[in-house]
C-alpha cells in the first residue's frame, strides 16, 4: 500500500454484513466506510477520494447494478467489486460488461475478498493516473488557437508543411510557426509524441470531403 489513503466504500443494506466487512477490511489495513443504501452513498461519499466500491447487488430502492450504471461516466466512478447473495449468471455478466472488477458470492473468503479489493484499488490508481494525464493534455489542448488546432490535426495525419499550407491557403512559413507553437504548447518533442497525446484524449482526425483537409473531432472521455 502506498502513501495515499485508499478507501473501500461498502454499500450493503444488511447491518451485520456492513459491520463484518468494515471490521475485516480495517483489520487488513484498509480505510473502510460503510453505507446502508445506494442513496446514502451518493449523498455522503467523497467524490474525489481514491478507492473502490464493495457493492451488494440486491438492495431495496436503488440496487447495486443501478448504482453501477449511475456511477459509470460520472466523476466519482470507481472500480466496483460486487458481493451477492444470489450469484445468477445474467446479473454477473451484466455487471462485468459494465466494468466490474469481480463478482463475489456471499459468504466471501478473505483471500478472495482482499485479492478483488487489491485489484480494484490498483485499477483505481491506474484510472486516476490516466485521468490526470488526460486532464493535462486537455488543458494543453484548450490553449491552442483554432488555427493551431487545425494545423495539429493535419500534422497528426502526417501531412507535410507544404500540403498543410496549400490546404489552409497560407504560406509554408506561417504553417511552420503554427506547428512550432503547437509542439511547444502541447509539450511534444516529436510528431510521434504529439500523435500519442492526441490519441490519449481521443482526438481523432476525420478527413473532410476530398480528403484534402481535416478537422479535429474530440470526444471527451
Amino acid at each position: 500500500m502506498n502513501g495515499t489513503v485508499r478507501t473501500v466504500f461498502i454499500v450493503d443494506d444488511a447491518r451485520e454484513v456492513r459491520v463484518g466487512l468494515s471490521r475485516l477490511l480495517s483489520a487488513a489495513g484498509y480505510n473502510a466506510r460503510a453505507f446502508e443504501s445506494a442513496q446514502c452513498f451518493l449523498e455522503e461519499q467523497d467524490a474525489e477520494a481514491a478507492g473502490c466500491l464493495l457493492l451488494d447487488v440486491c438492495m431495496p430502492d436503488l440496487n447495486g447494478l443501478e448504482l453501477q450504471r449511475a456511477l459509470t461516466c460520472s466523476r466519482s466512478a470507481r472500480p466496483i467489486v460486487f458481493l451477492t447473495g444470489m450469484g445468477d449468471v445474467q446479473t454477473s455478466v451484466e455487471a462485468m460488461k459494465l466494468g466490474a472488477v469481480d463478482f463475489l458470492t456471499k459468504p466471501v473468503d478473505d483471500v478472495k475478498l482482499f485479492a478483488a479489493v487489491e485489484q480494484a484499488l490498483r485499477r483505481d490508481e491506474e484510472q486516476r493516473l490516466e485521468r490526470s494525464i488526460r486532464n493535462t493534455i486537455q488543458q494543453r489542448l484548450e490553449i491552442l488557437t483554432p488555427r493551431e488546432l487545425q494545423v495539429m490535426g493535419q500534422v497528426i495525419r502526417g501531412r507535410l508543411n507544404k500540403q498543410i499550407a496549400a490546404d489552409l491557403g497560407t504560406g509554408e512559413k506561417t504553417v511552420k510557426v503554427h506547428r512550432a507553437r503547437v509542439m511547444s504548447k502541447m509539450m511534444a518533442r516529436s510528431v510521434a509524441e504529439l500523435v500519442q497525446l492526441g490519441a490519449r484524449v481521443g482526438v481523432s482526425i476525420q478527413p473532410t470531403q476530398g480528403g484534402s483537409s481535416a478537422s479535429i473531432n474530440w470526444k471527451q472521455v
Partner: peptide
C-alpha cells in the same frame, strides 16, 4: 430466504477472519 441467510453467514465469516488477523 437464501439471501437472508447469507447475511449472517457473511458477517460470521468476516468476523472470524478479522479475529484471525487480529
Amino acid at each position: 430466504l437464501a439471501h437472508e441467510l447469507q447475511q449472517p453467514l457473511t458477517a460470521i465469516l468476516c468476523n472470524a477472519h478479522s479475529a484471525q488477523l487480529l
